[in-house]
């Protein structure tokens, strides 16, 4: 029989890190493939996605949030929202999940060498960016300036918080955080991410801007980037859609004639603006 692309490989949850608590809880799961060969040889690139199965519950597509430089395991950061993610948040270390992938295209890590990278994330949208950011940090001298603009609803909702602090201090990355509404003790920006972007006014010179977050945020971030003088091919985003098969057959994740699962999730605004479709 030809290989069954719907059949997942087994992976063990080897660590769980609680990033955000409360109603919009986010956890990062470290997964290790059970098959020794797969564990050794599983390769992916930043931006690619993976289908995580919970047997008896269902399957969901997540961006891999760890960097490919970290070998022998992968990480996914998941917000508790639907049936699968709720069940995933109930998991504990040692439990088995299914995983198939990696799927989709990726960030152009080769082509972006020697460039400035501007990461603009909102909420859980930082997850796919984290993979690329960590990759860049591991290959710090290949890339020029790294800058992160990140916003969340409240200070409680900021994910990868410690990492941001660490980057700012040690790794020569400019991090600009924001929250939506003023809170006591918050001394960074207050307002939405697009507004923070406008305020910071980054230079488009030799820069690639990569953004991910809620659809409405992406829309205004792109608008603002264009106003700041970024060209269409300097703006990248990674999209999400409801997905079932992950391989371009089941038909639900299309934007125009493009399937986000296999032709995406990474799109330049250049491609996106010509795509007429429901997003």
């Amino acid at each position: 029989m030809t290989k069954n692309p719907y059949q997942p490989m087994l992976a063990t949850v080897i660590a769980i890190k609680e990033e955000v608590g409360g109603n919009r809880a986010i956890k990062t799961f470290k997964l290790e493939f059970q098959d020794e060969k797969v564990k050794e040889n599983f390769n992916f690139l930043p931006g690619q996605t993976i289908m995580i199965s919970l047997f008896g519950i269902g399957e969901s597509m997540f961006a891999i949030s760890s960097s490919p430089t970290e070998k022998r395991y992968i990480e996914v950061s998941v917000m508790k929202l639907g049936k699968v993610t709720n069940a995933l948040h109930e998991m504990s270390v040692g439990d088995t999940v299914g995983a198939r992938g990696p799927y989709g295209n990726h960030f152009d890590i080769e082509g972006w060498k020697k460039k400035n990278l501007l990461f603009i994330g909102g909420g859980i949208g930082q997850a796919p960016l984290r993979s690329l950011l960590n990759y860049c940090l591991d290959n710090r001298n290949e890339y020029d300036n790294l800058e992160v603009i990140y916003g969340a609803r409240t200070s409680e909702d900021i994910c990868f918080k410690e990492k941001f602090d660490e980057m700012q201090k040690q790794q020569d990355v400019d991090v600009h955080l924001s929250i939506d509404v003023q809170e006591e003790g918050w001394n960074h920006f207050v307002g939405f991410v697009p507004a923070n972007l406008q305020r910071l006014n980054p230079s488009p010179e030799n820069t690639i801007a990569i953004t991910c977050g809620p659809p409405i945020m992406i829309k205004f971030v792109i608008q603002n980037l264009l106003e700041l003088g970024f060209k269409e091919n300097q703006i990248y985003t990674t999209l999400e859609m409801r997905m079932k098969c992950g391989i371009g057959i089941c038909g639900r994740c299309n934007i125009g004639n493009v399937y986000v699962c296999k032709d995406g999730p990474v799109f330049s605004y250049d491609q996106l603006k010509d795509l007429e479709g429901d997003m």
Partner: peptide, 15 residues
């Protein structure tokens, strides 16, 4: 177009 769902009883099931 199709949907994929899990069906299971206590110890076993199928997608």
């Amino acid at each position: 177009c199709f949907d994929m769902q899990d069906e299971a009883i206590l110890k076993e099931g199928a997608r």
